[in-house]
Computed example of a mutant assay.
Amino acid sequence: MRGFLLVVDGVNEVVGRVFSWAVVLIMLITVYDVVMRFAFGQPSLWAFDVVKQLYALEFMILAGFGLVRNAHVSVDVFTARLSRRKQAAMEVVSYLVFFFPFMVMLIWKSYEFAARSWAYGETTWGVVALPVYPIKTVMVVASVLLLLQGIAKVFRELAVLAGREEAC
């Protein structure tokens, strides 16, 4: 079990570190577009669509990384005064009731969404007509990574409930 947890954490950590650099690319393209637009009167036809897709990539693919780092928003008002074991129990119940059903639906629907996009060869509406199907595929990949990280989180919380927190 510990091996599974380390692999899931490691994959999301690597994905997070690699794709967090997309923000630099977003910034460079945006600066390029602004300079071309205002200094040379030559706005780029592709920059807005590329930046939009890169931002979507970064936002989606870093979700699992955020869960590894406990960077997601949580409402600690209800659990702050509970013991660690009671907090773990609340986490497990909330993941079982809310997180896992949502993730299964998200993976299922995003797969259908991406498959339809690939089948049609979907592109953006802009002049450049960038392909959209790669970013829609990222929805599926990001959802799977987040689901795996959620499974790892639940296993860790179950270890706390079993009194074996150091095992995970």
Rank of each mutant, 00 (worst) to 15 (best):
D49W: 01
E112M: 14
E157I: 12
F99K: 02
R85K: 15
G3E: 13
T79K: 00
P101V: 12
E122I: 10
D76R: 06
A119N: 14
V93P: 08
L106K: 00
M105Q: 08
S44R: 10
W21C: 02
D33H: 07
E122D: 12
V141P: 02
L82A: 04
V73Q: 05
A71N: 12
V24T: 05
T123N: 15
V73R: 07
A167Y: 00
K52Y: 03
G126L: 03
R37G: 02
S74I: 07
V93R: 11
A119G: 14
S143F: 00
E112D: 12
L57I: 01
Y32Q: 11
V50F: 11
L28E: 04
W46T: 02
V92Y: 00
G150T: 06
M103T: 05
G10Q: 01
V77T: 13
F102W: 04
D9L: 00
V160M: 13
T123D: 13
A114K: 07
V104W: 06
M60L: 10
E166W: 01
A167H: 07
L54Q: 08
K109E: 03
F4R: 05
A129H: 04
A159H: 14
I26D: 09
L6F: 13
V51N: 04
R84D: 06
M36A: 13
V7A: 07
F19K: 00
V23G: 09
L5R: 12
M90Q: 10
V154F: 01
V75W: 02
L57N: 00
Y95K: 00
R81D: 14
F113L: 12
E58P: 04
L28H: 07
E157N: 15
R81C: 12
L6H: 12
F48G: 04
L106T: 02
T30Q: 11
I135P: 08
L45D: 14
G150F: 00
W125N: 09
A159R: 15
F48K: 00
R164H: 04
V97Q: 12
F113H: 09
A47S: 06
V23H: 13
F99D: 04
A39F: 14
W46D: 01
W46S: 02
A115E: 11
A88N: 02
R69C: 08
G126K: 06
L161W: 15
A71C: 11
G121M: 07
F4C: 05
R81V: 13
K52Q: 10
W125H: 07
W118I: 15
T79W: 05
F98G: 05
V144L: 15
Y111T: 09
L147Y: 11
V7G: 02
R85S: 14
L5S: 07
L158F: 06
V7Y: 02
R85M: 13
L82I: 11
S44D: 05
K86W: 11
I107K: 01
V7W: 08
V75T: 03
V93S: 07
V73F: 13
L62I: 08
V68C: 10
F40I: 05
L130Q: 12
R17H: 00
V23L: 15
V73D: 02
V15N: 04
Q87K: 12
R37V: 03
R156M: 03
A22S: 09
E91A: 10
L148I: 07
Q53F: 02
A56R: 00
